[in-house]
Amino acid sequence: MIEWVNSIVQGILLGGLYALFAAGLSLIFGVMRLVNIAHGDLIILAAYMGLTTIVMLGVHPFVALLIVIPLMAGFGYVLQRGLLNQTLGDDILPPLLVTFGLSVIIQNALLEIYTADPQKLNGGLIETASIPVGGLAIGILPLVTFAIAIVVIAGLQWVFYATAIGRGFRAVSDNQDIAQLMGLNKAHVYGLAMALALGVVAIAGILLGMRTSFDPSIGAGRLIFGFEAVIIGGLGNLWGTLAGGVILGVAQTIGAKIDPGWQLLAGHIAFLVVLALRPNGLFPRVEH
């Protein structure tokens, strides 16, 4: 019995990481209706940037965040203005295929630079430390990851609904032309949204790298987890995305408890069940 409870708790905490994968995806879709196929590869890129920072400066992964977040955010802004803005329009093919091409480029560039050998970010003591709660040992790292996910989502929520930048995001999302008339340059606003999304991606990448080993090929899997969390939670609802991540995480850990080969399958099945029963997700955005 306690083992099952343990699986569920681990799954909930894992959901925090998935919510971080999903938050950037959700934000980008919300602002500019762009689905970024390279999202997972960008998470892995961030993990490798963290690796290089840690190796070069000899710092803890959390300290590396101070460098990787601004680098990824800057990269996001440039990527959006230099490339992705040109793909936006009524046709869904250009953004899809361009980000698909980007995914292949990032993956193979990482392969070229870092080889296919699995890497890991060394978090030191935090990786193994745990606190006992009623017979369970809850790892500090998963707990911290989950807490960071909550802080990030609360932060994004605040940016979206309580700042001028967020107002701009929502206005451009509603009506590009009219927003432009009000002095918002949509190319710039989209650049900021992508910068914010890749800032979150940086956090997700570093936490992923501390949790498990990674190699250049695993980006696609992270994209799919993030995507599943978004759809389970309901499009356009950031807190729903956290719930979606938790459901996905719990499904995976319970699946793994039944049979290790079932971990990923159980997550995908949970996603398909939600899609069958509640196509708009469990917590679709309420119009206000």
Binding site: R167, R170, A171, D174
Partner: peptide
């Protein structure tokens, strides 16, 4: 063409962007 996602005041504030 007000912004439907924004409140009345947010619409006005957005007008003051410049």
């Amino acid at each position: 063409q007000l912004f439907p996602s924004l409140s009345v005041e947010e619409n006005l504030l957005l007008g003051g962007t410049v």
